[in-house]
């Protein structure tokens, strides 16, 4: 069961990473990156690293998303803008 969970989570991680890289709309990329962080947070917790999981959730999914969005608001929204 644990192996299945790990495998699903890691596959999901790769899938979200690819969607982040493929997104043309940078706001969509940020949202997908938040999802990536959330999945990674679950992986950390499941692998027994709650410290890293808390940081990943707070910094990866929370603070960096806000900072990225602000930067996009200041620059351009599209990758080739």
């Amino acid at each position: 069961m644990s192996v299945v969970f790990d495998a699903v989570m890691l596959l999901l991680l790769i899938a979200t990473a690819i969607t982040v890289a493929r997104a043309r709309d940078l706001v969509a990329a940020v949202v997908k990156f938040g999802l990536y962080s959330l999945v990674l947070c679950l992986v950390w917790q499941h692998r027994g690293a709650p410290d890293v999981a808390i940081t990943e959730a707070a910094v990866g999914a929370g603070v960096t998303s806000v900072l990225f969005l602000l930067t996009i608001a200041k620059t351009a929204r599209s990758e080739r803008g």
């Binding site: 410290d51 808390i54 940081t55 707070a58 910094v59 929370g62 603070v63 806000v66």
Partner: peptide, 8 residues
């Protein structure tokens, strides 16, 4: 961790 939470 606490820094990230207070900052948020």
């Amino acid at each position: 961790q606490s820094a990230a939470i207070i900052g948020a």
